[in-house]
C-alpha cells in the first residue's frame, strides 16, 4: 500500500518535473526542475532496493553535474525571443526525433513483452548474490567479473577529462602567477631596505 503510494508519487513527480524542465520559460527554472526529476528518480531507485545507486545518483547528478549546469546557465544571458524564433524552423526535426524515440521505446517494450530477456542471464551471468548488502554486491561484481569493463570505463573517462582540459586550456604569457613557496620564504631583510636619502635626491630602487 505505502509502496504503491510512494511509487506513484515519485513516478508522477519525475514525469511532471521532466515535462516542466522542457516547458519552463526560464532556463534556471528548467535546471531546478531537472534536479527535482533526478531526486524523484533516486526515490524510485530506493523503492526497488537499490539504495547504493540512489545515493550515487544524488551525489553525482544532483551534487555535482546539476550544480555545474546551474553555474553555467546562471551566467548565460539568454534572450528568450531569439530562442523562440527558431522554434518553427526546428519543429520538423524535433518531431522526427520524437518519433524515433517513441519507436525505440515501443520496440523496447515489445521486446520485454516477448519475454526473451531475463536480467543477468545473458553471457555467463550473475545470479544475484544472496545475503550481501547492495554496496558489497556491486563491488564484488565490478571488481571481479566486470573488472575489465570497469577499468575501461575509467580509462575512457580519464581520456575524456584530459581531452576537455587540453581543448579548453590556453597558455597565456601575460599572466603573472604566484610562487607561493617563494612568497613564504621571503624575509623582511631581503624585502626592505633602510635608507636615509638626502633632501631632494630621491631613492633609486
Amino acid at each position: 500500500m505505502i509502496q504503491a503510494i510512494a511509487f506513484y508519487l515519485f513516478a508522477t513527480l519525475t514525469i511532471f518535473s521532466g515535462a516542466v524542465t522542457i516547458l519552463a520559460r526560464n532556463p534556471v527554472h528548467s535546471v531546478l526542475w531537472l534536479i527535482l526529476a533526478f531526486f524523484n528518480a533516486a526515490g524510485l531507485m530506493i523503492l526497488i532496493g537499490a539504495e547504493f545507486i540512489a545515493m550515487l545518483l544524488v551525489i553525482v547528478y544532483v551534487g555535482a553535474v546539476a550544480v555545474l549546469f546551474l553555474f553555467v546557465v546562471m551566467m548565460l544571458d539568454i534572450d528568450f525571443s531569439q530562442l523562440r524564433a527558431g522554434f518553427i524552423k526546428n519543429f520538423p526535426l524535433g518531431l522526427a526525433l520524437a518519433f524515433v524515440l517513441l519507436a525505440e521505446l515501443l520496440m523496447g517494450v515489445g521486446a520485454y513483452k516477448a519475454g526473451g530477456l531475463a536480467l543477468g542471464t545473458a553471457n555467463a551471468a550473475t545470479a544475484p548474490i544472496a545475503g550481501l548488502s547492495n554496496t558489497a554486491a556491486i563491488g564484488a561484481l565490478l571488481y571481479s567479473r566486470y573488472l575489465f569493463l570497469f577499468e575501461t570505463a575509467g580509462i575512457i573517462l580519464l581520456v575524456a577529462m584530459i581531452g576537455a582540459i587540453v581543448l579548453t586550456h590556453r597558455q597565456r604569457g601575460d599572466v603573472r602567477g604566484q610562487n607561493v613557496s617563494r612568497q613564504n620564504a621571503r624575509r623582511p631583510e631581503e624585502a626592505t631596505i633602510n635608507l636615509q636619502p638626502e633632501v631632494g635626491k630621491g631613492v633609486t630602487l
Binding site: 545515493m55 551534487g63 554496496t135
Partner: peptide
C-alpha cells in the same frame, strides 16, 4: 539505520549548495 548512511550524508550535504 541504513546501509549507505555515510553516502546519504554526502548526498544531503551536497544539496546544501543549492
Amino acid at each position: 539505520d541504513i546501509n549507505v548512511g555515510l553516502l546519504y550524508i554526502l548526498a544531503i550535504s551536497s544539496l546544501g549548495v543549492y
